[in-house]
Design a protein around this nucleic acid. Structure first.
Lengths: 241, 241
DNA sequence: GCAAAAGTGTTAGTTCTACACCCATGT
DNA sequence: ACATGGGTGTAGAACTAACACTTTTGC
Protein backbone atom coordinates (compact mmCIF):
# COMPACT_ATOMS: atom_id res chain seq x y z
CA UNK A 1 0.00 0.00 0.00
CA UNK A 2 2.52 2.52 0.99
CA UNK A 3 5.43 0.74 -0.61
CA UNK A 4 6.70 3.63 -2.61
CA UNK A 5 8.97 3.71 -5.66
CA UNK A 6 6.36 1.66 -7.47
CA UNK A 7 5.30 2.73 -10.89
CA UNK A 8 1.92 4.17 -9.95
CA UNK A 9 -0.72 5.41 -12.32
CA UNK A 10 -1.33 8.87 -10.84
CA UNK A 11 -4.97 9.04 -11.86
CA UNK A 12 -6.27 5.64 -10.83
CA UNK A 13 -6.86 4.19 -7.41
CA UNK A 14 -8.78 1.44 -5.71
CA UNK A 15 -10.45 1.63 -2.31
CA UNK A 16 -11.79 -1.22 -0.20
CA UNK A 17 -14.79 -1.20 2.09
CA UNK A 18 -13.97 -4.16 4.31
CA UNK A 19 -16.91 -5.40 6.32
CA UNK A 20 -16.73 -7.69 9.31
CA UNK A 21 -19.13 -8.85 11.96
CA UNK A 22 -18.20 -9.29 15.60
CA UNK A 23 -21.20 -11.33 16.77
CA UNK A 24 -23.35 -8.29 17.37
CA UNK A 25 -22.60 -5.40 15.05
CA UNK A 26 -21.35 -4.62 11.59
CA UNK A 27 -17.79 -3.35 11.51
CA UNK A 28 -15.52 -1.85 8.92
CA UNK A 29 -11.74 -1.94 8.76
CA UNK A 30 -10.23 1.52 8.50
CA UNK A 31 -6.73 2.91 8.58
CA UNK A 32 -5.66 6.08 10.28
CA UNK A 33 -4.74 8.75 7.76
CA UNK A 34 -3.83 11.42 10.28
CA UNK A 35 -4.49 11.67 14.02
CA UNK A 36 -8.13 10.63 14.57
CA UNK A 37 -8.97 10.83 10.88
CA UNK A 38 -9.66 7.53 9.20
CA UNK A 39 -9.72 6.44 5.59
CA UNK A 40 -10.63 3.35 3.65
CA UNK A 41 -7.74 1.04 2.87
CA UNK A 42 -6.72 1.62 -0.72
CA UNK A 43 -3.93 2.54 -3.06
CA UNK A 44 -3.03 4.15 -6.31
CA UNK A 45 -2.93 1.42 -8.92
CA UNK A 46 0.41 0.18 -10.14
CA UNK A 47 0.63 0.51 -13.92
CA UNK A 48 -0.36 -2.61 -15.78
CA UNK A 49 -2.01 -4.27 -12.84
CA UNK A 50 -5.50 -5.58 -13.42
CA UNK A 51 -7.87 -3.55 -11.24
CA UNK A 52 -9.64 -6.50 -9.64
CA UNK A 53 -6.39 -8.38 -9.08
CA UNK A 54 -4.74 -5.35 -7.61
CA UNK A 55 -7.60 -4.79 -5.18
CA UNK A 56 -7.12 -8.37 -3.97
CA UNK A 57 -3.41 -7.68 -3.46
CA UNK A 58 -4.03 -4.58 -1.41
CA UNK A 59 -6.51 -6.51 0.69
CA UNK A 60 -4.09 -9.34 1.20
CA UNK A 61 -1.34 -7.03 2.26
CA UNK A 62 -3.58 -5.44 4.82
CA UNK A 63 -5.32 -8.44 6.31
CA UNK A 64 -3.06 -11.29 5.34
CA UNK A 65 -6.00 -12.96 3.63
CA UNK A 66 -6.34 -14.49 0.23
CA UNK A 67 -9.51 -15.99 -1.18
CA UNK A 68 -11.70 -13.57 0.59
CA UNK A 69 -15.02 -12.32 -0.75
CA UNK A 70 -14.23 -9.21 -2.78
CA UNK A 71 -16.47 -7.43 -5.22
CA UNK A 72 -16.16 -4.33 -7.32
CA UNK A 73 -19.15 -2.09 -6.80
CA UNK A 74 -18.64 1.39 -8.18
CA UNK A 75 -16.16 3.79 -9.74
CA UNK A 76 -16.08 7.26 -8.31
CA UNK A 77 -15.16 9.75 -10.97
CA UNK A 78 -16.14 13.22 -9.85
CA UNK A 79 -13.34 15.54 -11.00
CA UNK A 80 -13.13 17.26 -7.64
CA UNK A 81 -13.44 14.23 -5.41
CA UNK A 82 -9.96 14.84 -4.07
CA UNK A 83 -9.49 18.54 -3.81
CA UNK A 84 -8.58 19.52 -0.26
CA UNK A 85 -4.94 20.63 -0.10
CA UNK A 86 -4.23 18.33 2.83
CA UNK A 87 -5.59 15.31 0.95
CA UNK A 88 -3.51 16.02 -2.13
CA UNK A 89 -0.41 16.57 -0.01
CA UNK A 90 -0.98 13.33 1.85
CA UNK A 91 -1.14 11.39 -1.40
CA UNK A 92 1.89 13.08 -2.89
CA UNK A 93 3.91 12.37 0.25
CA UNK A 94 2.84 8.78 0.41
CA UNK A 95 3.25 7.85 -3.20
CA UNK A 96 5.92 10.28 -4.32
CA UNK A 97 3.98 11.17 -7.45
CA UNK A 98 2.29 14.36 -8.60
CA UNK A 99 -1.45 13.81 -8.73
CA UNK A 100 -4.29 15.78 -10.24
CA UNK A 101 -7.58 14.10 -10.64
CA UNK A 102 -7.90 10.59 -9.25
CA UNK A 103 -10.62 8.18 -10.20
CA UNK A 104 -11.25 5.43 -7.71
CA UNK A 105 -12.75 2.04 -8.27
CA UNK A 106 -14.29 0.79 -5.05
CA UNK A 107 -14.59 -2.76 -3.78
CA UNK A 108 -16.30 -4.28 -0.84
CA UNK A 109 -15.04 -7.27 1.01
CA UNK A 110 -16.56 -9.59 3.59
CA UNK A 111 -14.28 -10.96 6.27
CA UNK A 112 -14.58 -13.39 9.14
CA UNK A 113 -13.12 -11.19 11.85
CA UNK A 114 -12.22 -13.99 14.20
CA UNK A 115 -10.05 -15.73 11.65
CA UNK A 116 -8.10 -12.69 10.70
CA UNK A 117 -4.81 -11.92 12.27
CA UNK A 118 -5.75 -8.75 14.05
CA UNK A 119 -2.29 -8.11 15.45
CA UNK A 120 -0.83 -8.13 12.00
CA UNK A 121 -2.80 -5.36 10.47
CA UNK A 122 -3.33 -3.32 13.58
CA UNK A 123 0.38 -2.99 14.20
CA UNK A 124 1.53 -2.68 10.66
CA UNK A 125 -1.04 -0.34 9.24
CA UNK A 126 -2.76 1.40 12.15
CA UNK A 127 -5.86 -0.39 11.04
CA UNK A 128 -8.91 -0.77 13.24
CA UNK A 129 -12.32 -2.33 13.12
CA UNK A 130 -14.87 0.37 13.80
CA UNK A 131 -18.64 0.17 14.13
CA UNK A 132 -20.23 1.09 10.82
CA UNK A 133 -23.17 2.70 12.59
CA UNK A 134 -20.90 5.10 14.44
CA UNK A 135 -18.86 6.46 11.56
CA UNK A 136 -19.68 10.09 10.92
CA UNK A 137 -16.74 11.23 8.84
CA UNK A 138 -13.83 9.93 6.87
CA UNK A 139 -10.96 11.37 4.82
CA UNK A 140 -11.42 12.20 1.11
CA UNK A 141 -14.87 11.21 -0.18
CA UNK A 142 -14.65 7.93 1.68
CA UNK A 143 -17.84 8.40 3.65
CA UNK A 144 -19.71 8.55 0.37
CA UNK A 145 -17.94 5.40 -0.79
CA UNK A 146 -18.77 3.64 2.45
CA UNK A 147 -22.45 4.56 2.12
CA UNK A 148 -22.66 3.29 -1.40
CA UNK A 149 -20.83 0.13 -0.38
CA UNK A 150 -23.28 -0.49 2.42
CA UNK A 151 -26.18 0.08 0.07
CA UNK A 152 -24.69 -2.42 -2.35
CA UNK A 153 -24.17 -4.96 0.39
CA UNK A 154 -27.81 -4.56 1.41
CA UNK A 155 -28.97 -5.24 -2.11
CA UNK A 156 -26.58 -8.15 -2.46
CA UNK A 157 -27.84 -9.73 0.73
CA UNK A 158 -31.43 -9.64 -0.45
CA UNK A 159 -30.57 -11.09 -3.77
CA UNK A 160 -28.07 -13.62 -2.55
CA UNK A 161 -28.53 -14.23 1.18
CA UNK A 162 -25.76 -16.76 1.50
CA UNK A 163 -23.14 -14.00 1.42
CA UNK A 164 -23.81 -13.71 5.13
CA UNK A 165 -21.72 -16.85 5.65
CA UNK A 166 -18.70 -14.89 4.45
CA UNK A 167 -19.03 -12.80 7.59
CA UNK A 168 -19.56 -15.69 9.99
CA UNK A 169 -17.04 -18.08 11.50
CA UNK A 170 -17.12 -21.65 10.30
CA UNK A 171 -19.48 -22.61 13.09
CA UNK A 172 -22.19 -20.21 14.07
CA UNK A 173 -25.55 -20.04 15.77
CA UNK A 174 -28.77 -19.26 13.96
CA UNK A 175 -29.13 -16.14 16.03
CA UNK A 176 -25.91 -14.80 14.53
CA UNK A 177 -27.42 -15.00 11.05
CA UNK A 178 -30.37 -13.05 12.29
CA UNK A 179 -28.07 -10.47 13.90
CA UNK A 180 -26.26 -9.97 10.59
CA UNK A 181 -29.53 -9.44 8.80
CA UNK A 182 -30.77 -7.01 11.36
CA UNK A 183 -27.50 -5.08 11.42
CA UNK A 184 -27.11 -4.81 7.66
CA UNK A 185 -30.73 -4.21 6.72
CA UNK A 186 -31.47 -2.08 9.77
CA UNK A 187 -34.68 -3.92 10.55
CA UNK A 188 -35.85 -6.33 13.18
CA UNK A 189 -37.10 -9.79 12.40
CA UNK A 190 -39.52 -12.18 14.03
CA UNK A 191 -37.26 -14.69 15.68
CA UNK A 192 -39.55 -17.71 15.33
CA UNK A 193 -40.36 -17.16 11.70
CA UNK A 194 -36.79 -16.43 10.75
CA UNK A 195 -35.47 -19.60 12.36
CA UNK A 196 -38.18 -21.60 10.69
CA UNK A 197 -36.92 -20.33 7.38
CA UNK A 198 -33.29 -21.05 8.19
CA UNK A 199 -34.16 -24.54 9.32
CA UNK A 200 -35.84 -25.27 6.02
CA UNK A 201 -32.56 -24.57 4.21
CA UNK A 202 -30.88 -27.93 3.74
CA UNK A 203 -27.44 -26.35 3.42
CA UNK A 204 -27.41 -25.00 6.97
CA UNK A 205 -26.34 -28.03 8.93
CA UNK A 206 -26.35 -28.55 12.70
CA UNK A 207 -23.12 -29.76 14.25
CA UNK A 208 -22.92 -31.56 17.57
CA UNK A 209 -21.35 -28.55 19.23
CA UNK A 210 -22.89 -25.90 21.39
CA UNK A 211 -21.80 -22.48 22.54
CA UNK A 212 -19.59 -22.62 25.61
CA UNK A 213 -19.46 -20.50 28.73
CA UNK A 214 -22.50 -18.41 28.04
CA UNK A 215 -24.74 -17.49 30.93
CA UNK A 216 -27.87 -18.87 29.31
CA UNK A 217 -29.02 -21.86 27.34
CA UNK A 218 -26.17 -22.49 24.88
CA UNK A 219 -27.03 -22.28 21.18
CA UNK A 220 -26.45 -25.17 18.81
CA UNK A 221 -23.75 -24.36 16.26
CA UNK A 222 -24.36 -24.86 12.56
CA UNK A 223 -22.23 -24.84 9.46
CA UNK A 224 -22.82 -23.84 5.87
CA UNK A 225 -22.48 -26.55 3.24
CA UNK A 226 -21.55 -24.86 0.00
CA UNK A 227 -21.89 -27.99 -2.12
CA UNK A 228 -25.43 -28.64 -1.02
CA UNK A 229 -26.19 -24.98 -1.59
CA UNK A 230 -24.84 -25.03 -5.12
CA UNK A 231 -26.85 -28.10 -6.02
CA UNK A 232 -30.06 -27.00 -4.42
CA UNK A 233 -29.81 -23.54 -5.85
CA UNK A 234 -33.20 -22.01 -6.26
CA UNK A 235 -33.93 -18.90 -8.26
CA UNK A 236 -35.76 -16.34 -6.26
CA UNK A 237 -39.05 -14.95 -7.47
CA UNK A 238 -38.70 -13.28 -10.77
CA UNK A 239 -40.90 -10.30 -10.10
CA UNK A 240 -42.50 -8.42 -7.30
CA UNK A 241 -44.78 -5.92 -8.90
CA UNK B 1 -17.85 11.05 -29.51
CA UNK B 2 -15.37 11.44 -32.25
CA UNK B 3 -15.01 15.18 -31.94
CA UNK B 4 -11.25 15.29 -31.83
CA UNK B 5 -8.91 17.99 -30.54
CA UNK B 6 -10.51 17.56 -27.15
CA UNK B 7 -8.30 17.16 -24.17
CA UNK B 8 -8.78 13.43 -23.68
CA UNK B 9 -7.48 11.38 -20.79
CA UNK B 10 -5.68 8.64 -22.72
CA UNK B 11 -6.25 5.95 -20.12
CA UNK B 12 -9.92 6.38 -19.28
CA UNK B 13 -12.99 5.66 -21.32
CA UNK B 14 -16.68 5.07 -20.90
CA UNK B 15 -18.82 2.63 -22.89
CA UNK B 16 -22.59 2.42 -23.03
CA UNK B 17 -24.73 -0.65 -23.38
CA UNK B 18 -27.93 0.90 -24.70
CA UNK B 19 -30.93 -1.40 -24.46
CA UNK B 20 -34.20 -0.94 -26.28
CA UNK B 21 -37.28 -3.03 -26.85
CA UNK B 22 -39.14 -3.14 -30.14
CA UNK B 23 -42.34 -4.80 -28.96
CA UNK B 24 -40.96 -8.29 -29.30
CA UNK B 25 -37.25 -8.53 -28.68
CA UNK B 26 -34.46 -6.91 -26.73
CA UNK B 27 -32.20 -4.71 -28.85
CA UNK B 28 -28.95 -2.93 -28.36
CA UNK B 29 -27.67 0.17 -30.09
CA UNK B 30 -24.28 -0.37 -31.70
CA UNK B 31 -22.04 1.67 -33.95
CA UNK B 32 -20.01 0.35 -36.83
CA UNK B 33 -16.30 0.43 -36.06
CA UNK B 34 -15.15 -1.02 -39.37
CA UNK B 35 -17.07 -2.78 -42.13
CA UNK B 36 -19.38 -5.31 -40.43
CA UNK B 37 -17.64 -4.97 -37.08
CA UNK B 38 -19.66 -3.29 -34.37
CA UNK B 39 -18.72 -1.69 -31.09
CA UNK B 40 -20.51 -0.19 -28.13
CA UNK B 41 -20.98 3.56 -28.25
CA UNK B 42 -18.37 5.13 -26.03
CA UNK B 43 -15.52 7.56 -25.82
CA UNK B 44 -12.29 8.42 -24.13
CA UNK B 45 -13.12 10.70 -21.24
CA UNK B 46 -12.37 14.38 -21.55
CA UNK B 47 -10.13 15.50 -18.71
CA UNK B 48 -12.00 16.94 -15.76
CA UNK B 49 -15.36 15.61 -16.82
CA UNK B 50 -17.27 13.68 -14.20
CA UNK B 51 -17.55 10.09 -15.38
CA UNK B 52 -21.30 9.75 -14.90
CA UNK B 53 -21.98 13.15 -16.41
CA UNK B 54 -19.77 12.43 -19.36
CA UNK B 55 -21.51 9.14 -20.05
CA UNK B 56 -24.81 11.03 -20.19
CA UNK B 57 -23.26 13.48 -22.67
CA UNK B 58 -22.05 10.72 -24.96
CA UNK B 59 -25.48 9.14 -24.83
CA UNK B 60 -27.17 12.41 -25.59
CA UNK B 61 -24.94 13.08 -28.55
CA UNK B 62 -25.73 9.68 -29.97
CA UNK B 63 -29.45 9.44 -29.39
CA UNK B 64 -30.47 13.02 -28.87
CA UNK B 65 -31.91 12.07 -25.50
CA UNK B 66 -31.52 13.60 -22.13
CA UNK B 67 -33.07 12.31 -18.92
CA UNK B 68 -32.77 8.75 -19.97
CA UNK B 69 -32.22 5.86 -17.60
CA UNK B 70 -28.46 5.44 -17.30
CA UNK B 71 -26.57 3.46 -14.75
CA UNK B 72 -22.93 2.70 -14.14
CA UNK B 73 -22.41 -1.01 -13.72
CA UNK B 74 -18.78 -2.02 -13.92
CA UNK B 75 -15.26 -0.84 -14.63
CA UNK B 76 -13.19 -3.03 -16.87
CA UNK B 77 -9.56 -2.81 -15.92
CA UNK B 78 -7.69 -5.75 -17.38
CA UNK B 79 -4.33 -4.40 -18.54
CA UNK B 80 -4.56 -6.14 -21.91
CA UNK B 81 -8.21 -5.46 -22.66
CA UNK B 82 -7.24 -3.41 -25.68
CA UNK B 83 -4.27 -5.06 -27.23
CA UNK B 84 -4.97 -5.90 -30.87
CA UNK B 85 -2.94 -3.66 -33.16
CA UNK B 86 -6.01 -2.74 -35.18
CA UNK B 87 -7.93 -1.67 -32.07
CA UNK B 88 -5.11 0.53 -30.84
CA UNK B 89 -4.70 2.09 -34.27
CA UNK B 90 -8.40 2.78 -34.54
CA UNK B 91 -8.36 4.63 -31.24
CA UNK B 92 -5.23 6.61 -32.06
CA UNK B 93 -6.70 7.66 -35.40
CA UNK B 94 -10.01 8.64 -33.91
CA UNK B 95 -8.80 10.54 -30.90
CA UNK B 96 -5.38 11.71 -32.07
CA UNK B 97 -3.76 10.64 -28.84
CA UNK B 98 -1.22 7.96 -28.00
CA UNK B 99 -2.85 5.31 -25.85
CA UNK B 100 -1.46 2.47 -23.79
CA UNK B 101 -3.70 0.84 -21.31
CA UNK B 102 -7.31 2.01 -21.23
CA UNK B 103 -9.67 1.40 -18.37
CA UNK B 104 -13.32 1.60 -19.24
CA UNK B 105 -16.25 2.36 -17.00
CA UNK B 106 -19.38 0.82 -18.47
CA UNK B 107 -22.95 2.08 -18.26
CA UNK B 108 -26.22 0.64 -19.32
CA UNK B 109 -29.09 2.67 -20.54
CA UNK B 110 -32.75 1.89 -21.16
CA UNK B 111 -34.43 3.64 -24.06
CA UNK B 112 -37.91 3.83 -25.50
CA UNK B 113 -37.04 3.03 -29.10
CA UNK B 114 -40.16 4.52 -30.60
CA UNK B 115 -39.50 7.92 -29.11
CA UNK B 116 -35.95 8.15 -30.27
CA UNK B 117 -35.05 9.89 -33.43
CA UNK B 118 -33.75 6.93 -35.35
CA UNK B 119 -32.79 8.95 -38.42
CA UNK B 120 -30.58 11.15 -36.34
CA UNK B 121 -28.25 8.60 -34.94
CA UNK B 122 -28.38 6.17 -37.82
CA UNK B 123 -27.18 8.78 -40.30
CA UNK B 124 -24.77 10.59 -38.09
CA UNK B 125 -23.07 7.72 -36.36
CA UNK B 126 -23.72 4.56 -38.36
CA UNK B 127 -25.62 3.36 -35.36
CA UNK B 128 -28.04 0.46 -35.52
CA UNK B 129 -30.38 -1.37 -33.22
CA UNK B 130 -29.43 -5.05 -33.31
CA UNK B 131 -31.02 -8.03 -31.62
CA UNK B 132 -29.15 -8.80 -28.41
CA UNK B 133 -29.75 -12.50 -28.85
CA UNK B 134 -28.02 -12.52 -32.22
CA UNK B 135 -24.79 -10.76 -31.33
CA UNK B 136 -21.88 -13.13 -31.50
CA UNK B 137 -18.92 -10.77 -31.63
CA UNK B 138 -17.97 -7.16 -31.11
CA UNK B 139 -14.84 -5.03 -31.32
CA UNK B 140 -12.45 -4.73 -28.34
CA UNK B 141 -13.75 -6.58 -25.25
CA UNK B 142 -17.22 -5.23 -25.89
CA UNK B 143 -18.91 -8.61 -26.02
CA UNK B 144 -17.77 -9.20 -22.46
CA UNK B 145 -19.10 -5.79 -21.46
CA UNK B 146 -22.42 -6.49 -23.15
CA UNK B 147 -22.76 -9.81 -21.30
CA UNK B 148 -22.06 -8.25 -17.96
CA UNK B 149 -24.47 -5.44 -18.75
CA UNK B 150 -27.20 -7.90 -19.59
CA UNK B 151 -26.52 -9.82 -16.40
CA UNK B 152 -26.79 -6.59 -14.44
CA UNK B 153 -30.02 -5.65 -16.15
CA UNK B 154 -31.45 -9.06 -15.26
CA UNK B 155 -30.59 -8.58 -11.63
CA UNK B 156 -31.92 -5.04 -11.66
CA UNK B 157 -35.22 -6.17 -13.13
CA UNK B 158 -35.74 -8.72 -10.38
CA UNK B 159 -34.94 -6.28 -7.70
CA UNK B 160 -36.73 -3.33 -9.18
CA UNK B 161 -39.26 -4.49 -11.76
CA UNK B 162 -40.50 -1.04 -12.66
CA UNK B 163 -37.39 -0.37 -14.72
CA UNK B 164 -39.25 -2.16 -17.50
CA UNK B 165 -41.30 0.99 -18.03
CA UNK B 166 -38.12 2.72 -19.17
CA UNK B 167 -38.17 0.43 -22.19
CA UNK B 168 -41.86 0.81 -22.98
CA UNK B 169 -43.66 3.63 -24.74
CA UNK B 170 -45.91 5.81 -22.64
CA UNK B 171 -48.89 3.62 -23.41
CA UNK B 172 -48.39 -0.09 -23.57
CA UNK B 173 -50.25 -3.37 -23.33
CA UNK B 174 -49.80 -5.81 -20.47
CA UNK B 175 -48.51 -8.36 -22.93
CA UNK B 176 -45.59 -6.06 -23.72
CA UNK B 177 -44.50 -6.11 -20.09
CA UNK B 178 -44.57 -9.87 -20.20
CA UNK B 179 -42.57 -9.88 -23.44
CA UNK B 180 -39.88 -7.72 -21.84
CA UNK B 181 -39.66 -10.07 -18.90
CA UNK B 182 -39.45 -13.10 -21.08
CA UNK B 183 -36.85 -11.53 -23.36
CA UNK B 184 -34.59 -10.25 -20.59
CA UNK B 185 -34.86 -13.17 -18.20
CA UNK B 186 -34.97 -15.78 -20.95
CA UNK B 187 -37.92 -17.59 -19.41
CA UNK B 188 -41.56 -18.03 -20.20
CA UNK B 189 -44.33 -16.99 -17.89
CA UNK B 190 -47.86 -18.13 -17.28
CA UNK B 191 -49.93 -15.50 -18.97
CA UNK B 192 -52.92 -15.64 -16.62
CA UNK B 193 -50.91 -15.48 -13.42
CA UNK B 194 -48.64 -12.75 -14.68
CA UNK B 195 -51.54 -10.50 -15.69
CA UNK B 196 -53.19 -11.10 -12.35
CA UNK B 197 -50.05 -9.78 -10.70
CA UNK B 198 -49.82 -6.76 -12.98
CA UNK B 199 -53.46 -5.93 -12.40
CA UNK B 200 -52.96 -5.91 -8.67
CA UNK B 201 -50.36 -3.13 -9.07
CA UNK B 202 -52.20 0.11 -8.51
CA UNK B 203 -49.63 2.11 -10.46
CA UNK B 204 -50.35 0.37 -13.77
CA UNK B 205 -53.39 2.23 -14.96
CA UNK B 206 -55.73 1.37 -17.85
CA UNK B 207 -56.37 4.14 -20.37
CA UNK B 208 -59.43 4.26 -22.61
CA UNK B 209 -57.34 3.43 -25.64
CA UNK B 210 -56.85 0.15 -27.44
CA UNK B 211 -54.35 -1.11 -29.95
CA UNK B 212 -55.28 -0.17 -33.51
CA UNK B 213 -55.15 -2.12 -36.76
CA UNK B 214 -54.14 -5.43 -35.29
CA UNK B 215 -55.65 -8.56 -36.81
CA UNK B 216 -56.95 -9.84 -33.50
CA UNK B 217 -58.70 -8.63 -30.40
CA UNK B 218 -56.98 -5.31 -29.64
CA UNK B 219 -55.28 -4.98 -26.28
CA UNK B 220 -56.17 -2.29 -23.78
CA UNK B 221 -53.34 0.20 -23.31
CA UNK B 222 -52.06 1.08 -19.86
CA UNK B 223 -49.75 3.67 -18.44
CA UNK B 224 -47.33 3.74 -15.53
CA UNK B 225 -48.02 6.21 -12.74
CA UNK B 226 -44.73 7.02 -11.09
CA UNK B 227 -46.26 9.03 -8.26
CA UNK B 228 -48.53 6.22 -7.18
CA UNK B 229 -45.60 3.87 -7.44
CA UNK B 230 -43.39 6.00 -5.24
CA UNK B 231 -46.08 6.30 -2.58
CA UNK B 232 -47.09 2.68 -2.60
CA UNK B 233 -43.53 1.48 -2.63
CA UNK B 234 -43.25 -1.91 -1.06
CA UNK B 235 -40.00 -3.51 -0.04
CA UNK B 236 -39.60 -6.91 -1.51
CA UNK B 237 -38.96 -9.89 0.72
CA UNK B 238 -35.83 -9.48 2.69
CA UNK B 239 -34.53 -12.99 2.37
CA UNK B 240 -34.98 -16.08 0.37
CA UNK B 241 -32.92 -18.71 2.05
C1' DG C 1 -65.77 -17.74 -41.24
C1' DC C 2 -61.15 -18.18 -39.99
C1' DA C 3 -56.75 -16.99 -37.91
C1' DA C 4 -54.54 -14.64 -34.24
C1' DA C 5 -53.75 -12.86 -29.97
C1' DA C 6 -56.47 -10.79 -25.83
C1' DG C 7 -58.63 -11.66 -21.87
C1' DT C 8 -60.58 -14.22 -17.88
C1' DG C 9 -61.52 -17.68 -12.58
C1' DT C 10 -61.06 -21.49 -9.62
C1' DT C 11 -58.86 -24.69 -6.74
C1' DA C 12 -55.18 -26.89 -4.07
C1' DG C 13 -50.86 -26.26 -2.21
C1' DT C 14 -47.49 -23.41 -0.17
C1' DT C 15 -45.67 -19.69 2.34
C1' DC C 16 -46.19 -15.86 5.47
C1' DT C 17 -47.51 -13.55 9.65
C1' DA C 18 -48.52 -12.90 14.32
C1' DC C 19 -47.97 -14.36 18.66
C1' DA C 20 -46.17 -16.43 24.26
C1' DC C 21 -44.04 -19.66 26.94
C1' DC C 22 -40.56 -23.17 28.69
C1' DC C 23 -35.47 -24.49 28.73
C1' DA C 24 -30.47 -24.76 29.78
C1' DT C 25 -26.81 -22.47 31.52
C1' DG C 26 -23.63 -19.28 34.68
C1' DT C 27 -23.53 -16.59 38.57
C1' DA D 1 -33.01 -18.80 42.70
C1' DC D 2 -32.59 -15.61 39.22
C1' DA D 3 -31.17 -13.45 34.95
C1' DT D 4 -30.16 -14.28 30.21
C1' DG D 5 -30.89 -15.46 25.73
C1' DG D 6 -32.16 -20.19 23.19
C1' DG D 7 -35.61 -22.64 21.40
C1' DT D 8 -40.42 -24.14 19.91
C1' DG D 9 -46.08 -24.64 17.28
C1' DT D 10 -50.42 -23.20 15.53
C1' DA D 11 -54.01 -20.99 12.98
C1' DG D 12 -55.62 -17.55 9.61
C1' DA D 13 -54.28 -14.85 5.66
C1' DA D 14 -51.95 -14.14 1.49
C1' DC D 15 -49.76 -15.78 -2.36
C1' DT D 16 -48.46 -19.15 -6.02
C1' DA D 17 -49.11 -22.59 -9.63
C1' DA D 18 -51.58 -25.09 -12.73
C1' DC D 19 -54.84 -25.11 -16.10
C1' DA D 20 -58.76 -24.15 -21.05
C1' DC D 21 -62.05 -21.57 -23.15
C1' DT D 22 -64.43 -17.23 -25.05
C1' DT D 23 -63.86 -12.64 -27.23
C1' DT D 24 -62.66 -9.18 -30.62
C1' DT D 25 -60.61 -7.80 -34.45
C1' DG D 26 -58.70 -7.85 -39.72
C1' DC D 27 -58.69 -10.25 -43.67
Amino acid sequence: MTISKQNYNPSLSIDCVIFGFDSKSLKILLVEQTKNVYKLPGSLVVKNEDLDVYAAKVLKELTGFKNVYLKQFFTFGAPNRISKAKDILWIENNYKVKVKRIISTAYYSLIKIDESNTEFYEKKHNAQWLNVAEIKELAFDHLKILKKGLETLRAELKFNPVVCFELLPEKFSLREIQDIYEAIQGISLDNRNFRKKLKSAKYIIPTKEKQKSVAHKPAILYKFDKKIYNNSFKESNLFNF
